[in-house]
Design a protein around this nucleic acid. Structure first.
Length: 255
DNA sequence: TGGGTGACGACGC
DNA sequence: AGCGTCGCCACCC
């Protein structure tokens, strides 16, 4: 979207009614609108409506975005005149702040919603396998379907689907490409160099000095291997042999 | 309705 | 170590 289209639209409207009134009318009719926002991946389109944030996309021009939006949701999306609490919260979240923005997942199936909700629980600096999400939401066999659901995440970055990776700690797919996914995760503090060094040796878990064992992508445990109390583990049996119990945060195995 | 598809995972070379 | 194969499940015609 260009600056001029935003201004032109705003000026034409402002001459008749106040932006605030217009925003309320738009929300009242459930009309969807969008702005350009700054994220860890640069500028993105941020779309929302009265329910919440409906879409985040990286695109080259607003014509493509609006066409994509109509194709995906079956309704239009117009440039916003100004921000409102929803878009402001989303902007803050995209900047990395711990701010909750309402999200519109009405177009998603119940299964997709459960997948996305679980992905939303994965904190910055952490990653979890696709199979972990499947197990956590009660359908342990549906790992492949989890990938499909994440691939349809309407609000990437806001719901951090980039934090779901393969069991072997390779990044797997991403709407914006695997390279972007890896960049994002490294920017959040995940040390893929250290992880790859261990997974190449067949390491699946990390034993910690608090008596628990973790996934290698549980916070920064991987960087502590070799420190007192931290050890590289090949299997759950090996963890048990050391008297370790599953970490309550990353929950490396089924309860 | 049923067969095709895919951001997975385990296994076998 | 990398690459097929095959099973899995939710979704889409």
């Amino acid at each position: 979207m260009s600056e001029s289209s935003l201004h032109t639209y705003g000026a034409a409207t402002a001459s008749r009614v106040s932006p605030d009134f217009t925003a309320k009318v738009f929300a009242g009719f459930g009309l969807d609108r969008y702005v350009v926002a700054t994220s860890a991946l640069g500028e993105v389109y941020l779309a929302w409506n009265a329910t919440g944030v409906s879409a985040i996309r990286r695109m080259d021009d607003d014509g493509a975005f609006e066409a994509w939006y109509r194709e995906r949701f079956g309704r239009g999306c117009v440039p916003a005149i100004e921000d409102d609490p929803t878009s402001s919260a989303a902007r803050a979240a995209l900047r990395g702040q711990q701010v909750a923005a309402p999200i519109d997942l009405r177009e998603c199936s119940p299964f997709e919603q459960r997948v996305l909700q679980k992905a939303a629980e994965i904190g910055r600096g952490n990653a979890r396998p696709y199979g972990w999400v499947a197990r956590e939401i009660g359908t342990p066999e549906a790992t492949r379907a989890v990938g499909n659901a994440l691939g349809r995440n309407p609000v990437p970055l806001l719901i951090p689907c980039h934090r779901v990776i393969r069991t072997d700690c390779t990044v797997g797919g991403y709407v914006f490409g695997g390279e972007a996914k890896r960049t994002l995760l490294e920017g959040e503090g995940i040390d893929f160099g250290a992880i790859e060094m261990l997974t190449r040796r067949g390491i699946r878990y990390i034993g910690c000095d608090d008596g628990t064992f973790c996934l290698p992508t549980c916070g920064d445990v991987v960087t502590r291997v070799g420190a007192p109390g931290y050890r590289a583990l090949h299997s759950v049996d090996e963890a048990h042999a050391h008297g370790l119990v599953p970490c309550g945060l990353c929950r490396p195995i089924a309860a």
